[in-house]
């Protein structure tokens, strides 16, 4: 089972890859729409990438609540621990 730090690093890496950013540009407080300039389709693609990376399923309702990098890290950490 991966540690919380490993999950965090992997989520950040997935987001960075998806939006073609450097990992240090992906801090917890960054909003996908406002700070990372992501449109709705890019967020859909990111959610798919997280599902794939962590072998989890994220429902549309859950995905809507993931607005920042921190939200994504928390969601995946909780789901991976479950």
């Amino acid at each position: 089972m991966p540690t919380a730090d490993e999950i965090r690093a992997k989520v950040v890496e997935t987001i960075a890859k998806s939006f073609r950013l450097e990992p240090d540009q992906v801090s917890d407080d960054k909003s996908f729409q406002e700070d990372l300039d992501a449109d709705s389709l890019e967020i859909v693609e990111l959610v798919m990438a997280l599902e794939e990376e962590f072998g989890i399923e994220i429902s549309d309702e859950e995905a809507e609540k993931i607005r920042t990098v921190g939200d994504a890290i928390n969601f995946v950490t909780e789901r991976a621990a479950a």
């Binding site: 389709l41 859909v44 693609e45 798919m48 794939e52």
Partner: peptide, 10 residues
């Protein structure tokens, strides 16, 4: 089907 890219159609 759940792995199809949202960018396929556009």
């Amino acid at each position: 089907p759940r792995r199809i890219s949202p960018f396929l159609i556009p």
